[in-house]
Design a protein around this nucleic acid. Structure first.
Lengths: 202, 202
DNA sequence: ACGACTGTTGACCGACAGTCGAAAAGGTGG
DNA sequence: CCACCTTTTCGACTGTCGGTCAACAGTCGT
């Protein structure tokens, strides 16, 4: 408990290495060396290499998740505005470490693990918050739909999968078209005027 | 080329082992032993352990993909019926090897790799086929939407992610509600009567 | 008989995740 | 300042695994 520093230094080291290397090629000793500590110490703070990654994903989303949770109770701000704020917060911190150097070919495949963790975490944590805001929007008459939870899930799934680019690789332009199509579906589905959901675009 | 048998036997072996073990814990020697061949032979047929998995995923979806492609030119069958047939074909072969023994805890996380490969493959291969059918439906006036490609992508993303259950873990009931919500969105978005897309439900 | 080609193999290699016992660092009471 | 204990740190070590390779066996055309 005293030395929160080293715990964080390990995370910093992994984050730094992840910026232009794929996970599989990063060894634990290397993380230790980058963090300026012995390899054994890594295992004092983490039970496995995997756990380091998990902790890093969690830490990276701490901030936006906190703001998202805070926003869910700010009922004086209109629902759509709050959603826009949440997505903006996520975008700011997401690109921080998930995107990495080209590493075409098999490299793209080998980052799968990292991306899966990240998507899983985002969807699980953000869904209830987003659902709550949608629910408020429904109650206020801004949104017409009968299942806030499900709607939140659909939006999050499509957005994260498309933002991520590992699961459904496509051109930047195709990605934009898909998100635009989602927006159009949502606007018709929730009986909102065209353009009102444009904030979902990056 | 003569010995297609061994190639397939390797795939069979991996498939069998995958039924109740996680990928990470299966060694190449073990695959070789299960297939009844030497370890060296594995590398005669595959460049890496990873490639075996990739080939297995591909093989598992050969059949439904062939039927899907065949269906895209059967214009005498109504689009919705053809889509229903495609999804049915996929469902039949998908559960074949992707689902595996419980292995709660970290086990669920470690299968990520396999699932990522599978989702990636499905979406990439099935999207153009589905888009073509949707395009025909638009031309025939059955569907009203301006971007067939994007629509196909959205449907596939949500369905595969939700069917898969690794990326967005949720209860069976929650999954059903999400798919129902997607159907409702699609029906409104493409100006089709409620219930006309129910075939998307499993 | 003979190369050339196609398969097949397991011993071997380097690398890595994770373990361990020892020792340094830090704290506490006398 | 010292005994004593707990927390923290460490790198040498271990077992295992993915992948390589040199050797070898079968087969076919000449």
């Amino acid at each position: 408990m005293a030395n929160q520093l080293k715990y964080d230094r390990i995370l910093d080291a992994l984050q730094e290495l992840l910026e232009n290397r794929k996970l599989q090629s990063i060894s634990v000793s290397e993380i230790a060396h980058t963090a300026g500590i012995g390899k054994g110490s890594i295992y004092y703070y983490f039970p496995s290499k995997d756990a380091i990654l998990e902790a890093l994903v969690e830490r990276s989303y701490e901030k936006p998740l906190r703001t998202a949770k805070a926003l869910s109770s700010q009922t004086e701000i209109p629902p759509f505005t709050r959603m826009a704020m949440i997505f903006q917060a996520c975008r700011n911190s997401s690109s921080e470490f998930v995107r990495s150097g080209e590493s075409e070919g098999s490299g793209a495949q080998e980052k799968a693990y990292l991306h899966q963790k990240y998507i899983n975490h985002i969807i699980t944590e953000l869904k209830p918050v987003l659902a709550e805001i949608i629910r408020q929007g429904i109650a206020a008459g801004d949104i017409r739909f009968n299942d806030a939870e499900a709607l939140a899930e659909i939006v999050l799934i499509v957005l994260t999968v498309k933002t991520d680019d590992t699961l459904a690789p496509a051109s930047r332009e195709q990605n934009e078209r898909t998100i635009r199509a989602l927006i159009s579906l949502l606007e018709k589905g929730t009986e909102n005027p065209p353009g009102s959901l444009n904030f979902l675009m990056s």
